[in-house]
Computed example of a mutant assay.
Amino acid sequence: MTAATDASSAPAERELLTGEAVALDVRPASYLLRAAGTIIDWLTYLLIMFGCLMLLVATGGGLDGALVRALVILILVFGMVILPTTIELATRGRSLGKLAVGARIVRDDGGAIGFRHAFIRALAGVLEIFMTFGGIAALTGLLSTRSKRLGDLMAGAYSQLERVPKARPLDLYLAPQLAGWAQTADVARLPDRLSRRIAQFVRQAPQLTPAARVGLSTELAREASAYVSPLPPVDAETFLVGVAVLRRQRDTRALQLEHDRLDRLTPVLDALPHAFPDR
């Protein structure tokens, strides 16, 4: 029961609801990707600050000591707060590290971040990244379902993965014993999220271990059985393949009918009213 609750709460955490209560399936960047992007940004800012300090040492020999200390503090503030805030604000949540891992910082509702979000994240980064060498950020990211660091929690933002792998075509065939069942089966009530999970399992099943394959197919078949009628007397994986094939066929048929309907309406929509000449 606990495992089922955790499995259902994890997708809910990644689910984004629009103003029309439509759920969007967005993918937060993983912990390792976030760590890699943060390290790249951290090294970049350190190199910039080190270069500014070296320039100050080379050209500021005749400056007053108090002025030198003030310039050093200004360089540190620039490299740790001003520069990260400006870059994220100008690129709408992107930076060198996030470009490298294919991620972007967005608000919790999926919108682009503003000055407040970028400034809070940069200000919190002074403590959790620079002063503790990333220790607080690493610990907070491990405890968060979206790999949020402390600055993300304070600003109400997270790192969204934008570089997703290209979908590969899935070749599925209906088992012969399901031919009669497919004529009367109803899979229209199957939720889109569950349908995608079933398709993902069918695609990855050959790479799974036998125990994991049986366990996942049994769990998915149990969830799908509440939305499929009638239930065929076959094993869980064969049932899931049949559901995936039937769902794809009916979705394809619906899209084709919509395309045909639009083709029939195209002459009417493009024509001028009352045979008015096209000038």
Rank of each mutant, 00 (worst) to 15 (best):
R247K: 15
R116A: 12
R279E: 13
I87T: 07
L255N: 13
Q204Y: 11
L71M: 11
L47H: 01
L43V: 09
F119T: 12
K166C: 00
E128A: 03
L161R: 09
A205I: 03
G102K: 04
D25R: 14
L53H: 10
L76V: 14
V164H: 10
V241I: 12
L74W: 08
D263Q: 14
E219V: 12
P84H: 03
T140K: 01
A254S: 13
V245G: 09
L265H: 07
A29K: 03
A21N: 14
S159Q: 06
L178D: 08
K166Y: 04
R222N: 13
A10Q: 10
A155V: 04
D64Y: 02
L246M: 15
V228T: 08
R222S: 14
T266K: 11
G151N: 02
A205C: 06
L262W: 10
A205S: 06
I48G: 05
S229E: 08
Q183E: 15
P206E: 04
T209Y: 03
P273N: 08
A212V: 12
I39F: 13
L56K: 07
V57Y: 12
D109F: 06
T2L: 13
A157F: 03
D235P: 03
D251T: 13
R94M: 08
V164F: 08
K98G: 05
T18S: 11
D109S: 05
K148L: 07
L67K: 05
M1Y: 12
E20R: 15
D251E: 15
P230R: 08
T238L: 02
S95D: 02
L17G: 02
D263S: 13
L123M: 13
E223P: 03
V234W: 08
G242S: 08
L190D: 10
D6L: 15
R222T: 14
R213M: 07
R146G: 02
L272F: 11
D152H: 03
L17I: 11
F133D: 00
P232M: 01
S229M: 07
A188T: 15
T238R: 10
I120S: 05
A236V: 04
